[in-house]
Amino acid sequence: MTLEVKNLTVAYGEREVLTDISFQIANSQIIGLVAPNGTGKTTLFNAIMRFVPVKSGHILVDDKEYTAKDKDVLKLHQLITFFPDQADLHENFSGTEHIEMYADMWAGKKDHVRDIIRRLEMDDYVDRKVSTYSLGMRQRLCFAMVIASDTPIMFMDEVMNGLDPENVSLVSDILIELRDEGKIIIVASHLLDNLDEYANKVFFLKDQQLHFVFDHSDETIDYFKLLCTEEQVAYLEAHVTLPEDTIHLGNNVLCIPLQELTEAEQLAIYKHLRHLKDVEITVGPMGTSEYYSHLYGLKIHSFNRGHQHEKPVSK
């Protein structure tokens, strides 16, 4: 199965929200969808689902176009589920009923519901009414509903919201299992490092367009990735010649490509780093988080551990 979006443009009145978006996703793929708030992630989902009018463009599944006609929309909705908002759950229904409803509506069967409940470790609360659930419980329920629908394409909008690290890990594992079953999954998330754990590709939306695709299967180069203050960056630049394509991410992350550096040069940089206070260093390829900072000019204003200005830059 393939999902293809061709030259999709969405506008609210005169204002274009998405312009000329095109991509194709083959089966067994998880796509991360990344962009700051209000830049069109949910609109992209809504447009593909035909919940909102599309100014131009085409939606194709397995090379068959699905237009805005009632028949096509209905067939499209049989193929795609859209992650529900936890606030929209029926408060008087139990979790089991929600899952069964989705299973019944899409898959026409309910025999897999208990397995899903067990897999998501929801046994202890799922038969209670939703009105008693915490945010995390609701979020897991929404996830379980989408899984129960068992559609070949799933749109997971903000799927990790409100989940604790353990459940983020659990959901991530299940996403991988679903991918292995052949499903196409698009995950819109702000947990950027988490996306790197399972996404085949990450789509970055910017300026109403699909600005950049980070493909994990592409060959990558390693970087020194330093989490440090601006003063520390200045200190480093004063003492070491950094490669030209060193990337300054916001004001706190410095990515130094190692590709063109000899081991001695790498060691020299490392030695200088050892003189700096509170610098964190990781070595590896750029991840979604770094691309995000790079593309959107993210500044981590909160990077202040309370004593940066008490002592000099170096030890």
Binding site: F51, H77, T81, D85
Partner: peptide
């Protein structure tokens, strides 16, 4: 108003 995203995408006309 309250259950939009749960019901909107149901595969039913």
């Amino acid at each position: 108003e309250n259950n939009y995203s749960v019901t909107q995408g149901l595969p039913l006309p």
